[in-house]
Simulated scan of single mutants.
Amino acid sequence: MTAHNPVVAAFIAAINNGDRSAFAATLAPGATMSDDGSDRDLDNWTEREIFSAGGRFTVETQEPDGLTMLARFRNDTWGEMKTRWRFILTPDGSKIRRFETGQA
């Protein structure tokens, strides 16, 4: 399933393609994130949990706006797990200013 929101869809495609540049292009300057309710350093976390670990993302269900979803996320470190994701976009809807993830 593809994300309904085009910015989130580009974020997921960048993860699945291992494309750091495309991933960075989906994020607003100063974007933030949290994992299991704790704020994390976005660059460090994405490198460790996604890009260096072969992270892959499969959307299972999502809200109609495409900004909240359940997904199967897998990487070479932790294997596959069901995760929840919430995205907050910039006011114009063109970039992700924050994402929150955690085990579902």
Rank of each mutant, 00 (worst) to 15 (best):
F87W: 05
R48P: 15
R40E: 08
L70R: 12
R20Q: 11
F57C: 10
A10P: 03
A14F: 05
E60S: 13
Q103A: 08
T77I: 14
E60K: 07
K82W: 06
V7S: 04
G55H: 11
E63W: 08
D76R: 12
D35I: 10
D76K: 10
D39C: 13
R98T: 00
E100M: 05
I88E: 00
K95D: 00
G18V: 07
N5A: 06
T83N: 15
V59C: 14
H4G: 13
H4C: 11
M1D: 11
R40S: 05
A31P: 00
G66E: 13
D39E: 07
G66S: 07
Q103P: 09
I96E: 02
A13M: 07
A71M: 06
T61N: 05
L89S: 04
T68H: 12
E100L: 00
L42W: 07
E47C: 11
S94P: 03
T77A: 14
P6E: 08
A24I: 15
A3L: 08
W85I: 11
D43Q: 15
T46K: 11
A9R: 12
T83D: 11
A9L: 11
T61A: 07
D65Y: 12
T77S: 14
I96C: 01
R20W: 12
F99G: 00
T83W: 05
E63A: 13
G54I: 13
P6T: 07
S21T: 13
T101S: 04
F11Q: 10
P6V: 09
T101A: 11
D36A: 11
G18E: 09
T58K: 01
N75K: 06
Q62P: 10
R40V: 09
F23D: 03
M33A: 01
V8G: 01
T68L: 12
L27T: 02
E49T: 09
G55K: 09
I96Y: 01
N5Q: 12
A10K: 09
D65N: 05
D35T: 06
A71H: 04
T77E: 08
S34N: 02
T46Q: 06
V7L: 06
F99L: 02
A22P: 01
I50S: 02
Q62D: 03
E80C: 10
W45T: 01
T58Y: 12
M81N: 09
T2P: 08
F87V: 05
R74V: 14
L42M: 10
E60C: 11
T61E: 10
R98Y: 03
I12M: 07
V8T: 00
A13V: 08
V8W: 03
R48H: 15
N17Y: 06
G102W: 11
M33T: 09
V8P: 00
A10M: 10
L70A: 08
D43M: 15
R72D: 06
D92M: 00
T32D: 03
A28P: 00
A24C: 14
M81I: 07
D36S: 15
E47T: 15
P29I: 07
A104E: 01
R56K: 15
A10I: 02
A14V: 08
Q103W: 05
